[in-house]
């Protein structure tokens, strides 16, 4: 591993971790909404959340380009209000990874929310617990395995994110050159095989490590629950 290789790995971790932490509250709120609430337009929200899962990632990246470009509705505001841009920056890679991870995280969390026995929440209320306390002490702990599973899935998806990232923020070494993009770039240059092998091995270790870590975390919380 060269210093440059380590830089690529650290950048990938930074992008993936930031992306899942950013998207977790949003994914939880959407999962709760879709699992518990009946409202007009629910199917549309459901479909929009799932869109990045079925759309070619390049199209998602292109849509992000339109939204977050300096002339785009979101990019324009960011530029005008804060003087920042996510274009060709690692923050743009975070946004691409977050959008791609969202559907997987919503699905995992939603399943676990739907699996919560509402009768337990009723029992807690008869015992004097407010809605907030029921959520904190009953609903949230019971949904925890799904939340952890969602985090791991989202992390793994973010780590592997390629298409949307490269079409949105291109391949800028040190900014948007995450593991898959760096591997792809190394495959294009003569003599890059060594780097491809090293980074591929790191990818396998990180993904496997994430899965095993989450499995162990969940088993400690509840001996009978599992992600794998």
């Amino acid at each position: 591993m060269t210093g440059e290789d380590w830089g690529i790995v650290l950048l990938s971790l930074k992008v993936a971790i930031t992306a899942v932490l950013l998207v977790l509250p949003i994914a939880f709120a959407l999962a709760w909404l879709l699992a518990r609430k009946r409202f007009p337009g629910r199917i549309l929200v459901d479909a929009l959340v799932h869109l990045p899962l079925v759309l070619p990632p390049v199209v998602t990246g292109w849509a992000l380009l339109l939204l977050f470009g300096r002339m785009g509705p979101i990019g324009g505001l960011l530029d005008r209000w804060f003087g920042v841009t996510v274009m060709f920056r690692w923050t743009g890679a975070v946004i691409a990874a977050a959008v791609m991870a969202l559907p997987l995280m919503v699905r995992a969390i939603r399943l676990s929310i739907e699996a919560i026995d509402a009768r337990l929440e009723e029992a807690a209320r008869t015992l004097g617990a407010s809605r907030v306390r029921v959520f904190r002490t009953i609903s949230l702990p019971l949904a925890l395995p799904g939340i952890l599973a969602g985090l791991v899935l989202g992390f793994a998806r973010s780590l592997g994110e390629f298409g949307a990232t490269i079409s949105f923020v291109s391949n800028i070494p040190g900014e948007t050159g995450t593991l898959p993009i760096a591997i792809y770039a190394a495959m294009q240059v003569p003599g890059g095989e060594g780097r491809v092998v090293r980074l591929a091995i790191v990818s396998v270790i990180l993904s496997l490590g994430a899965l095993i870590a989450s499995e162990l975390m969940i088993r400690r919380a509840n001996p009978r629950a599992h992600v794998l």
Binding site: E122, A123, R125, T126, L127, G128, A129, S130
Partner: peptide, 8 residues
Amino acid sequence: PETRRAGY
């Protein structure tokens, strides 16, 4: 329900 103090 949380203020009815029913032991259910």
